[in-house]
């Protein structure tokens, strides 16, 4: 698992995470992520083949809510917090460039 982490891979991760990083930040991120991944190789030696993954501390099951409507939020209170709002809706610039 401790294969070499390339700068190209880090660039792709930054794009996936939608983070603008400049060249210096990318270089630093590559170095630091590589350092961490190297450290995390300590679990490589463990035999985990028979171990079930654990996603939560407690195994709760069937936590369900009745289908009953509750009053929602006031639209104006919410839109007042929005960076851009027009005609009761949230405004965004043209939806482009979302594919990587």
């Amino acid at each position: 698992m401790s294969e070499r982490l390339t700068r190209t891979a880090v660039e792709r991760v930054a794009k996936l995470a939608r983070l603008d990083l400049d060249d210096a930040e990318l270089d630093q991120a590559t170095e630091r992520l590589a350092g961490m991944l190297h450290h995390f190789a300590d679990i490589d030696a463990l035999d985990l083949s028979a171990v079930e993954p654990m996603t939560q501390p407690y195994d709760l099951v069937n936590v369900l809510r009745d289908d009953v409507e509750q009053p929602g939020l006031d639209r104006q209170e919410v839109l007042d917090e929005a960076p851009d709002a027009v005609d009761g809706r949230f405004g965004v610039p043209p939806i482009l460039g979302l594919e990587l």
Binding site: V86, D87, G88, R89, F90, G91, V92, P93, P94, I95, L96
Partner: peptide, 11 residues
């Protein structure tokens, strides 16, 4: 989408 000035979102 193409050529629009922007979009408005209703949730």
């Amino acid at each position: 989408i193409h050529g629009s000035e922007g979009s408005l979102i209703d949730f």
